[in-house]
Design a protein around this nucleic acid. Structure first.
Length: 909
RNA sequence: GGGUACUUAGCUCAGUUGGUUUAGAGCGCUUGGUUUACACCCAAGAGGUCAGGGGUUCGAAUCCCUUAGUACCCACCA
């Protein structure tokens, strides 16, 4: 067989992924003879493009699911996407605008139609991208939250919860996004500190010449004021309580009330109360039965209560009203003031607290079992540190605002039949609604056209909270065989940012609709940041394109790079250097494979001592590592498990075992040894397969005749390992290192055999003669030793010893290393060499090539010189000079390597 | 403002209920090397008062107090 010297990642990725698909290797069906191991994907937004966060948590899921398959589970990974109502609707609106179509000019049906067109055209690419990183989902099961079965489940659940009395309609102070014209949940609002102003405004007191002064950051809202409030014990104002103040401009009379809520120390101690536009004021308003005046339209302009400011934007009005107050002499003073404003996560518009009629889900009762399950460790959280956060949130849970003023999503199954909005029925279809409405209203003449469905859609999370159940159709058919088999799922892998949005709510729904947890383990990953610790964001341009990364480093390389850096729950600082490390690892494995396959096999040959002993040691080492890896997996220490494997392969297998076992050039290897090496290598491929599916399958395919794909291989088992053998080999390593150190210190060339006297252990060790064979066999092989047993003839030399084993190296072995001159030591010499060479070659092509090399050589040298100068001066900026110097040094090292490579090229020329 | 974490080598992090750890790993760094798998490499090596201070203990990176800094979550003051 012809093995290419480099591993061509993209070629093999394509080949193997297609193979997996063609042979349905990812598919899972109910099989009562096997245990199920289920993961449901956190459905990415259908609009989404793969980013590093997806990459991270999907790679983790793939590793878990692939390992589960190897362990013999019936592993099922269900993929899918989320309709993401706000995000998608925003994109569709933009898309239509680009086409010159305004949303307002469309009917609901037309818009939804466009949205589907858009979704079908651009949506779901993310699933294709997941295939590129090797995700082994059962693609037949792909779900979308707006699929018919999924939608029906959502509606059923709404009706069920409504009938149980958990859903109610209420007026609430909600976060209103005037740009998207929808309410937002608390979680969709980001608070940001901005430099604002605090305006002090005088309000006249009726029937007196006096006034009082309030402080506000939002002077435009005074038009909605319905009271002034002071602290009941504030001596400055105690006499004013019960009197009437007059709102400037609006000239409306409002009461002066008192409440302990007011902070005497803030501003002037007087608070203007605007119940319709501030949640605290709303509470005061309800408590003191104040009037609620809403002064805004839905787009953030003022309505008729805005008087002459009607139809102007809130921020324009703020400026104008300040001017007017000033002109009228009501403006006392203006201070600079830092204040927090809420901004919409989606549109970044400043949100407006607004009183609005919304649908709510009562959470307190529903949350109880979900809280208990996590606290009792029935559902395990990795890492544990999120437990407190979870607990705190669930204990103080607020009702869930589930309605959204959008068109893209599940329309609320509420039908109004009267003129009064209080006359409604909840039903699955319009026909059923009509039946119900006729019965309730006792009006048999009601026609279907009299029914008006509530225009709102449900919050996106109101569909995804059912995800682990609804993907198996467990809402509509609670006893179907799939849900009974696959539910509860095993692991949920997601980011901590949606712990409350999604994870907590899934637990709630799991207990409510299945009376059981939705998953056993929650693995929360960290956020992916760049190497400076900044969040990855489009605006910063610090987010690498995962697909490009895969092209550069290979899917296996990128997976390894990501996994090496992800300790559970901590944010990971991503650097493409890590992917390079992953790629190097793949290269290393590939070369080990090439080496093994290059050995001529001899079936007559009997194994050498060192080979037998080396393989014996590796067997125990492997077993020990498997045990460690299993334990690490059980604790979800994925990156540690990978590191353990990395060292097992690179150090133990490649640097020690293969070096001991490999035959000298041109010689053959005993078939018994070869077979054992292949068997060990196969086991390594299985262990690595969850992390690096492509390269391991490619290699495994060539290890034996009729090799089967690794996807359903058996995860190797650890056995009782002999710690004495492991310890003994530890001694060997130390000895070998000692010899090498000796060589280096005395500048002895590695290839020259070293004469070594072995001094017998002077005491009785029952196993010592066995051990000596082992020792000497391995060490001789590794270090080109001429081993002599017995006392050394002279005391001139050095003794290396480990415990009781002592070796003596006489000094006469010493020999200076002859430094090979590459081409020349100086720039001049190299340049001279190059120009001589140029005169010798005849073809123009060679000449230009040499010209280029010469140029490149000078350029690199120049660059190196300037770096060195810079380093010696060290005139760097004060902050973190260490870092900068490090960086410069590594540049210098890079350049040196490049020069070396260049000289190599010249030599080969 | 309330809460939860965190601070260990140049960088990113391990360090399990105080006791085999002389505080580890990977990367990076330094030095040497073409040895017929691999320079995407090999080999050897140098790096740490465990944020500062105090305490408990025979013994502290680990427990307590304190100071400083960082991150995240919750709430939001007109």
């Amino acid at each position: 067989m012809n093995i290419p010297s480099k591993f061509d990642a993209s070629k093999f990725e394509k080949k193997w992924y297609q193979y997996y698909l063609d042979h349905h290797l990812f598919d899972s069906d109910v099989d009562e003879n096997k245990k199920a191991y289920t993961i449901v994907i956190p459905p990415p937004n259908v609009t989404g493009a793969l980013h590093m966060g997806h990459m991270l948590n999907n790679t983790l899921q793939d590793i878990l699911i692939r390992r589960a398959r190897l362990l013999g589970y019936n592993a099922c990974w269900v993929p899918g996407t989320d309709h993401a109502s706000i995000a998608t609707e925003a994109k569709v609106v933009q898309w239509l605008e680009d086409k010159g179509i305004k949303k307002s000019s469309l009917t609901r049906e037309e818009f939804v139609d466009y949205a589907w067109q858009w979704t079908k055209k651009y949506g779901g690419q993310i699933l294709n991208q997941l295939q590129k990183i090797g995700c082994s989902c059962d693609w037949r099961r792909t779900k979308f939250t707006l699929d018919e079965s999924m939608s029906e489940s959502v509606i059923d659940v709404f009706i069920d919860l409504y009938n149980k009395g958990f859903i109610y309609k209420g007026y609430r102070m909600v976060h209103w996004d005037p740009q998207a014209q929808t309410t937002l949940s608390d979680e969709e609002v980001n608070h940001q500190e901005i430099n604002g102003k605090l305006y002090y405004v005088n309000y006249a007191i009726k029937d007196t010449l006096g006034h009082l002064t309030i402080a506000t950051t939002r002077p435009e809202t005074i038009l909605g004021d319905t009271a002034i409030c002071v602290h009941p014990e504030d001596q400055r104002y105690i006499s004013l309580i019960g009197k009437t103040a007059i709102v400037p401009i609006a000239k409306r009379e409002i009461p002066i009330i008192s409440d302990a809520y007011v902070d005497k120390a803030f501003g002037t101690g007087c608070l203007k109360v605007t119940p319709a536009h501030d949640s605290n004021d709303k509470e005061l308003g309800e408590k003191h039965q104040l009037e609620f005046i809403d002064i805004f339209n839905s787009d953030g302009t003022l309505n008729e209560f805005g008087l002459h400011y009607k139809d102007q934007d809130r921020f324009v009005v703020r400026k104008k009203i300040v001017e007017e107050l000033s002109t009228l002499g009501h403006l006392h003073k203006v201070e600079n003031y830092k204040t927090n404003v809420g901004k919409s996560e989606r549109t970044n518009a400043i949100i407006e607290p607004r009183l609005s009629e919304q649908w709510f889900l009562k959470m307190e009762e529903l949350a109880k079992p979900a809280l208990k399950a996590v606290v009792n460790n029935e559902i395990k959280l990795y890492p544990k540190k999120f437990l407190n956060t979870y607990k705190h949130w669930m204990e103080n849970i607020k009702d869930w605002n589930i309605s959204r003023q959008l068109w893209w999503g599940h329309q609320i199954p509420v039908y109004y039949y009267g003129k009064n909005k209080k006359d409604y029925v909840v039903a699955k279809t319009k026909e059923k609604a009509l039946e119900k409405a006729r019965a309730i209203s006792q009006n048999p003449d009601l026609k279907i056209t009299d029914l008006v469905q509530d225009p709102d859609v449900l919050d996106t999370w109101f569909s995804s909270w059912l995800w682990p159940i609804s993907v198996f159709d467990g809402i509509r058919h609670p006893n179907n065989s799939e849900i009974n088999y696959y539910y509860p799922t095993k692991d949920l892998v997601t980011g901590p940012d949606i712990l409350f949005f999604w994870v907590a709510r899934m637990i709630v729904s799991g207990y409510e609709f299945r009376n059981e947890k939705p998953f056993q383990n929650i693995f929360l990953t960290g956020l992916v940041r760049d190497h400076l610790g900044r969040k990855m964001a489009k605006q910063l341009g610090n987010s690498p394109d995962p697909i490009e990364l895969i092209q550069t480093y290979g899917a296996d390389g990128v997976r390894v790079g990501l996994m090496l850096s992800t300790s559970a729950g901590n944010d990971l600082l991503f650097d493409t250097k890590l992917c390079q490390q992953g790629k190097n690892f793949a290269n290393k494995i590939w070369n080990a494979f090439r080496l093994i396959k290059s050995w001529p096999i001899d079936s007559e040959l009997s194994p050498r001592d060192a080979q037998i002993q080396g393989l014996k040691w590796f067997d125990h080492r492997l077993s020990q590592a498997i045990e460690t890896i299993d334990q690490l997996f059980n604790r979800y220490r994925i990156s540690d498990a990978l590191m353990c494997l990395y060292k097992l392969v690179w150090e133990d297998f490649c640097s020690w075992l293969l070096e001991i076992v490999k035959p000298t050039y041109g010689q053959s290897i005993s078939i018994n040894v070869y077979d054992q090496v292949i068997e060990d290598f196969e086991k390594l491929m299985v262990l690595l397969h969850p992390f690096m599916p492509f390269i391991t399958d490619e290699i495994n395919d060539h290890l034996k005749e009729n090799a089967k794909p690794l996807i359903h291989a058996k995860w190797p088992k650890s056995h009782q390992h002999n710690s004495e053998i492991l310890e003994l080999f530890g001694f060997i390593k130390q000895l070998v290192t000692g010899f090498r150190h000796f060589r280096k210190q005395n500048q002895l060339p590695f290839v020259k055999p070293l004469k070594v006297y072995q001094i017998q252990p002077s005491f009785d060790e029952k196993k010592s003669s066995d051990y000596l064979t082992f020792f000497n066999a391995c060490i001789e092989k590794m270090e080109h030793l001429n081993m002599i047993v017995g006392e050394p003839p002279t005391s001139q030399g050095k003794t290396i010893s480990i415990q009781t084993y002592r070796y003596f190296i006489p000094m006469e072995s010493k020999q200076k290393i002859s430094k090979k001159k590459l081409i020349g030591d100086s720039i001049e010499e190299v340049s001279q060499y190059l120009s001589d060479l140029k005169n010798q070659v005849s073809s123009e092509k060679d000449k230009t090539q040499l010209e280029k090399m010469s140029h490149e050589f000078l350029r690199l040298n120049h660059f190196l010189a300037s770096l060195n100068k810079k380093l010696n001066n060290q005139n760097f900026i004060n902050k973190a000079p260490g870092q900068i110097i490090q960086k410069e040094k590594s540049k210098a090292a890079d350049t040196k390597i490049k020069i070396q490579q260049l000289i190599q090229d010249i030599r080969n020329f």
